[in-house]
């Protein structure tokens, strides 16, 4: 009996250590990046162009590139993803087509980002060059759309499923069409959940590098239109760290990214909590 109690004590201690270790790792990573990079962050760093291949100066073009890319990707991906979720949840029941769509969505979620990059390169950058301008924000956005689609579809579907059927019945019984019910009642009710998915997708686009390495071109110039190449903060970090060797700038950029991701996560969980509150 004594032995059993001792074993349990040892095991539980080990598991607690693992749990706390996870938190420590996170704190260490964030702390390390921030302590190395925070001193770089200044108004000037955020608002001026890089000099000497990015080894000096600011990260302004990368911020602009990130914003353009995120906006374009989400403007295209949101209606498609939410539309797909509405179709799956409101318009069909289990059938061949539905299971095919679900399978494809799952498969998309599992494809490595560099493979998305290869596809984006072959399809959007090379084949559709007359339309997309080759390496461009548009090519990268379209690639990004295929990447974030599963996240948006899944979260939107969860949010739609959480809307009780009694609301659908209540609305339809008033003589509204299905689409009126969805537009006027179901979507607004599910909105916090849908927004959570959108914010998570924004995080994915901000953090993604491999796919954009092959589709965005990586120029350090400020993009003038969607058909221009650009670089995102993540891409900038990679390029200055691996190609220019400007570690100060790399850490500074990383610190900016960490702050961005923190903001994105906090916002997402705020919306998620609102969703939970709405149904309890």
């Amino acid at each position: 009996m004594n032995n059993v109690a001792r074993n349990q004590k040892i095991a539980f201690t080990c598991l607690s250590v693992l749990g706390l270790l996870t938190v420590c790792i996170l704190i260490y990573i964030i702390g390390y990046i921030v302590s190395q990079g925070l001193h770089m962050i200044s108004w000037e760093f955020l608002t001026t162009k890089p000099r000497k291949m990015g080894s000096e100066g600011g990260i302004y073009p990368a911020i602009v590139g990130t914003v353009y890319l995120v906006l374009t990707t989400m403007i295209i991906a949101t209606p498609i993803g939410v539309g797909a979720a509405i179709y799956l949840n409101e318009y069909t029941s289990r059938g061949k087509i539905t299971s095919m769509i679900r399978f494809a969505t799952e498969a998309l979620a599992g494809i490595p980002s560099i493979v998305f990059g290869l596809f984006g390169f072959a399809f959007f950058v090379i084949l559709l060059k007359p339309v997309t301008g080759g390496w461009s924000i548009l090519s990268a956005s379209l690639t990004g759309v295929t990447m974030v689609l599963p996240t948006i579809v899944r979260t939107a579907e969860e949010a739609l499923k959480a809307v009780p059927d009694s609301l659908r019945e209540g609305s339809l019984a008033l003589g509204t069409t299905k689409w009126q019910t969805i537009k006027g009642l179901i979507l607004p009710t599910a909105m916090p959940g849908i927004i959570t998915g959108i914010i998570l997708s924004i995080g994915r686009v901000v953090g993604e590098t491999a796919a954009f390495l092959l589709t965005l071109g990586g120029t350090i110039l400020i993009p003038q239109s969607l058909f221009d190449g650009s670089r995102t903060l993540s891409l900038h970090l990679y390029m200055v760290a691996m190609e220019t060797g400007a570690m100060d700038v790399a850490f500074g950029t990383a610190a900016v990214l960490i702050v961005l991701i923190l903001v994105i996560n906090i916002t997402a969980s705020w919306f998620f909590r609102r969703l939970v509150k709405r149904f309890s």
Binding site: S166, L167, E169, A173, L185
Partner: peptide
């Protein structure tokens, strides 16, 4: 309906 189903608005 059986259970009141006011819309969340």
């Amino acid at each position: 309906f059986q259970k009141p189903n006011p819309f969340p608005m």
